[in-house]
């Protein structure tokens, strides 16, 4: 790791101030950033540790949505009675990110700010059509937030403060785990709302998390596995690596979507 100055602000206001510094980087749960720093793949001058800010941590209900503070840890989301009751798929997803120790440190905000193409949370945020609130006072719709792998709508120094998840009629997340990293080799979040169905896919595409429009249209007509007959994802633009070819990932997108529909129904 390169040397850096470390600061741990106690309030969001202090954090915003600290983020104005040259080469400042925010540290949320650190479960991705710290390994990255160890590999010397990042060299911040200042690391702004957000774990001391209580105002961005916690879960509450807001206008019918489940609002999760950006600093809320995966284990807290998984264990939340409100989340379990209203969006069990989100609880399930949070309870299967990484491993128990990662879930005790990793946060929603950290995962979304990083936007790893194989992370689980982006699938929930996009699949549920959540709204991302930031320290700049912006409310960014999920459809606008994700802009390709490791790229988001956040501006320099802008921090996520909370995410509002609308409550679906039905939803499920199916994760096909990459055996080494425990990230998603392919993960599919399916959510049915009164106004339609959203299908978000993570782990598969070189463009990062994406909505699978054909499946959404088919499931919008009939929310049943059979509706997906003949609906296939294209391998074009899918990730090919040690763990799966683009063809395999495209195939898994279909299988995981069907299984998610089954689990949600």
């Amino acid at each position: 790791m390169y040397a850096f100055d470390y600061t741990r602000p106690a309030s969001l206001a202090e954090a915003i101030e600290a983020m104005r510094g040259d080469e400042a980087k925010a540290l949320a749960g650190g479960q991705t950033l710290i390994p990255t720093l160890k590999q010397r793949l990042a060299s911040p001058a200042t690391l702004v540790d957000l774990t001391g800010i209580t105002e961005i941590r916690g879960i509450c209900l807001k206008d019918g949505a489940v609002s999760v503070g950006a600093g809320t840890r995966h284990a807290e989301v998984a264990a939340s009675a409100d989340v379990r009751r209203l969006i069990p798929a989100l609880s399930h997803l949070a309870g299967h990110i990484g491993d128990p120790q990662v879930r005790n440190r990793g946060t929603l905000g950290g995962s979304l700010a990083n936007n790893d193409p194989s992370a689980c949370y982006p699938a929930a945020v996009l699949g549920l059509g959540a709204t991302v609130h930031t320290s700049a006072g912006r409310a960014i719709a999920a459809d606008d937030y994700f802009q390709g792998m490791f790229t988001t709508a956040l501006d320099e120094g802008e921090l996520i403060t909370s995410v509002d998840f609308p409550v679906p009629e039905k939803a499920a997340y199916m994760k096909f785990v990459q055996p080494a990293s425990r990230f998603a080799l392919t993960g599919v979040f399916v959510a049915k709302f009164a106004g339609g169905v959203r299908v978000a896919v993570t782990g598969a595409s070189e463009g990062g998390v994406f909505r699978w429009a054909e499946a959404e249209a088919a499931l919008g007509r009939s929310f049943a596995v059979g509706a997906l007959d003949g609906v296939e994802a294209s391998p074009d633009g899918m990730i090919g690596d040690l763990h799966g070819t683009p063809e395999y990932r495209a195939h898994l997108v279909g299988v995981m979507t069907r299984r998610a529909v089954e689990a949600a129904a």
Partner: peptide, 28 residues
């Protein structure tokens, strides 16, 4: 089932950490 060391054509080790080299875990 899980393990394998893969080099690309230029000799870079692709399975160079536990992020890509799959060690058997308890649930496997």
């Amino acid at each position: 089932m899980l393990e394998g060391c893969t080099y690309d054509e230029s000799g870079q080790l692709l399975s160079a950490s536990y992020m890509d080299y799959a060690m058997p875990r308890a649930a496997d």
